[in-house]
């Protein structure tokens, strides 16, 4: 299932949080060889984890992490504006209608549906909170996966070679893309909404619909 958790609330999900930061170490340090900082417990964190980001996390049935991404508003401190302005034509991307999505991560045993479920959850955030675009920093080899899921970013720029290739891209999420991703995730829209409501609360009208 999908959970939406602000950093300040991660302590309520210790196993999920620990396994997320370990999977991030596994993906970004071990598999991709990026120069990220991994602590003595084998967990990867950076400065942006201290900005109270909103994590979107796939929780496996055993309570551990299956995949995740990290969202921050671009009106605050962001990775793309601090480190990758040379890949965005020199434009500092700042708007309350644009959020940053970074550390898109999948656990080694992630099933193909997990990436799609995360994209779907990202789409739900956009729809519900009036976010019109995501700007993302990601492992350039993910592009193939994004395309297969049905939600390809517009690449603004990329650098590095092979597994160290990093890209900056933009997403928007049309109703059409949403439908395509829902199909590849095999997740009913109703379920996506329920996960969202579990995290952010339901409105009485929605509760009535569910009960009917």
């Amino acid at each position: 299932m999908i959970r939406y958790i602000y950093a300040e609330d991660l302590n309520k999900f210790p196993m999920l949080a620990r396994s997320m930061f370990r999977d991030r170490a596994d993906q970004f340090a071990t598999r991709l060889g990026w120069e990220v900082s991994v602590d003595e417990r084998g967990e990867e964190r950076d400065d942006y984890d201290r900005e109270n980001p909103l994590y979107v996390i796939w929780e496996k049935p055993d309570g551990t992490h299956g995949g995740s991404m990290r969202l921050l508003p671009t009106v605050g401190k962001t990775m793309v504006n601090d480190h990758f302005v040379h890949l965005t034509d020199g434009v500092r991307i700042e708007s309350p209608l644009i959020w940053e999505c970074t550390r898109f991560c999948l656990s080694r045993d992630a099933t193909p549906g997990i990436a799609a479920a995360l994209m779907l959850a990202g789409g739900e955030v956009m729809r519900q909170f009036g976010v019109e675009h995501y700007v993302g920093v990601f492992d350039a080899r993910m592009v193939r996966i994004y395309r297969r899921i049905g939600s390809s970013p517009d690449i603004l720029g990329q650098e590095g070679q092979g597994r160290e290739m990093i890209a900056v891209g933009l997403w928007e999420f049309t109703a059409e893309a949403q439908k395509k991703v829902a199909e590849s995730a095999g997740i009913a829209p109703k379920l996506t909404r329920q996960w969202f409501e579990m995290a952010f609360g339901a409105t009485p009208a929605e509760v009535d619909v569910e009960a009917a």
Binding site: I93, E94, S95, P96, L97, I98, H133, D154
Partner: peptide, 17 residues
Amino acid sequence: SISEHTLRVYIESARFK
């Protein structure tokens, strides 16, 4: 030589600034 989507994001950023 950019996509329309990219243009929209640049314009959105400029609007905010």
